[in-house]
Design a protein around this nucleic acid. Sequence first.
DNA 1: TCCTCTGTTTGCGCCAACGCAAAGACCTGT
DNA 2: ACAGGTCTTTGCGTTGGCGCAAACAGAGGA
Lengths: 243, 243
Amino acid sequence: MVLQFWQKSFKMKPDPDILKILKSSEFASGLKQEKLIDVLTQGRHARLESDDILFSQGDPAVSCHLVLKGRLKLTKLHEQGREAIVRYIDPGQLTAAIAVFKGSEYPVTALAVGRTEILSWNRKIMVHLMFKYPELAIKLLEVAVTRLDEIQTRYLELVAEQVDQRIARTLLRIMKHGGIKTSAGIEIPFPISRQEMADYAGTTLFTVSRTLSVWEKKGWIKSGREKITITNVHALVLFSEIG
Amino acid sequence: MVLQFWQKSFKMKPDPDILKILKSSEFASGLKQEKLIDVLTQGRHARLESDDILFSQGDPAVSCHLVLKGRLKLTKLHEQGREAIVRYIDPGQLTAAIAVFKGSEYPVTALAVGRTEILSWNRKIMVHLMFKYPELAIKLLEVAVTRLDEIQTRYLELVAEQVDQRIARTLLRIMKHGGIKTSAGIEIPFPISRQEMADYAGTTLFTVSRTLSVWEKKGWIKSGREKITITNVHALVLFSEIG
DNA sequence: TCCTCTGTTTGCGCCAACGCAAAGACCTGT
DNA sequence: ACAGGTCTTTGCGTTGGCGCAAACAGAGGA
């Protein structure tokens, strides 16, 4: 059924991965097939190269976006230089719901991690669709509330936990988002630097490096240049919870 | 017009303060009068004494709430003891939109600061209303997105700024929420302890105390037991921005 | 008025985490 | 194979902010 959307929309062979993503995404669930297709058909498809910037913090927020393939990294910049990674947006996930509201600005910057495909709706279309299908608005609300819960949890972690515990959580989060199982353990399939880990965990590149070194000696992980494989998930999980 | 709701709903003399709040609230704006009244009429009115707990972190989320009078303090507890103040909910503001989604739990605890009046809707009613008035769902989405932006900003501050700068921001935030102008400066009209300030700023009672002492010597504030008056807003604002 | 309870201040010691610098590892293009 | 760039590691010194303890100060009740 979603196939219909694909054919109508792109007039090319559907990518089976994307079809699967769409069907199981946070976005699609709760919308009846025909409605979903209507919604999807009105989105604009786009491809991004790695490191392309989809939108920048402070830009007028005009469109919200659904990731079909690849990944978006959302970062927020502080005047005093420091940058924080707010979250990654994985395939099937939606971002920038703020674009629905007139006069708003993107509060973060979105950058493609690897080649990325997205579907975008501008405000007018999205508002129209939400009036047509209230369940769509409710779905967006659900997404926003989920994001809210996540960041509140991380806020609390930042306040309550030690760096190494937070680094463990960060690593596990990245793993959950995109990790793939290999014979050696669970591997992060996209390049991630110490600096990025630091920006995600709210610490510095040095501290991350030191911490990962220790874990490598303990045999919990194997790491190289912008590459991490978790070899003892259990130990890491335990550590992330108990500290 | 909102008066109609009041009379129908409570069969008593409307509180002019509450009427004013309702009309100018984030919640009411964007809803046509008749629709607003319909929505309000279906809420359940309740009064809370100071320190009453409206809901607790982990409880099944059954209702969302609009504050009419008083204030709610939302806190989130970490297993390892520490507590963070997530935000205050002021008159006219809505909270716990999460209750709209089946099977979810409150991610925070809500406690009344002073005598507080609220209007509550359970899930079934709220979902029904959102289908009836899609603009209501969109309004809730706007609220959620606003909250999201706020906490992301505070998250970044926590990562990027020094304690005293964060304490300044905290003080200013509390001031903006409920501060009242007096001859001596702007006063926080509800009791707030050093511990609470610390939980809000993500630090400890001691650090807050030391910092406030310094500012008092500088003449920026005057403070007593659970009481703060800001006498030099400008200096504080500057400090909160530059550090 | 005094006593108690709860919140606040301040001195002191400490350490987790930062910041810098310099060396090392790895990757890419020529 | 080498050069130049980028990312990572590690040692070392520094320090912001924490934690404890003890003294202090209002506020309310008996």
